[in-house]
Amino acid sequence: MLLPELNNPINFFLEYRTRIILVRLILLSLVTFWIYGFLLPMILFIDHSFLSFLLSRFYSNVCHQETTKCISIGSTSMLVCARCAGIYSGAFISGLFSLMMFTRNISRKVLILSIIPLGLDVFFTMIHLYSYSQAVAFSTGLVFGSIVYLVIISELDNLTFNKVHLGHE
């Protein structure tokens, strides 16, 4: 049975800090690896052949990869669009901060609020109210990605908490 003081989530976080941070580190590593993947054409020189096809195909499942919407430096561009790059960057930034702080349960309203700017930007560009801007797409993605990451982290913390607290989920 768990000690009563561990019923408090902050005490729980302090008590199981190593385990929680380890889980967050693993998740952050996976996000970093994912970001490294779509930045690969910019970091390393990849010829337009088999590896390029494989990488492009890999990320095409999760992004439309329209050339005009992808951030590019010189002749090379990322394998995902500016919005997706923003989402993953937001997750990465949240991941870094989450290593140093206790994440409280994220309200559903915050999650919905974070998706509103993104949704509005998609809608407005779709009806041609204004033209697509990589900066706006990146920023709206950044906000959404960081909140989504915190939701995932808090859910993983709940999983750990419940497993330790109740002995099961």
């Binding site: 995932i152 859910e155 993983l156």
Partner: peptide, 9 residues
């Protein structure tokens, strides 16, 4: 993960 968090809340 997100779905569980949202639906439980």
């Amino acid at each position: 993960l997100i779905g569980t968090a949202v639906i439980n809340k």
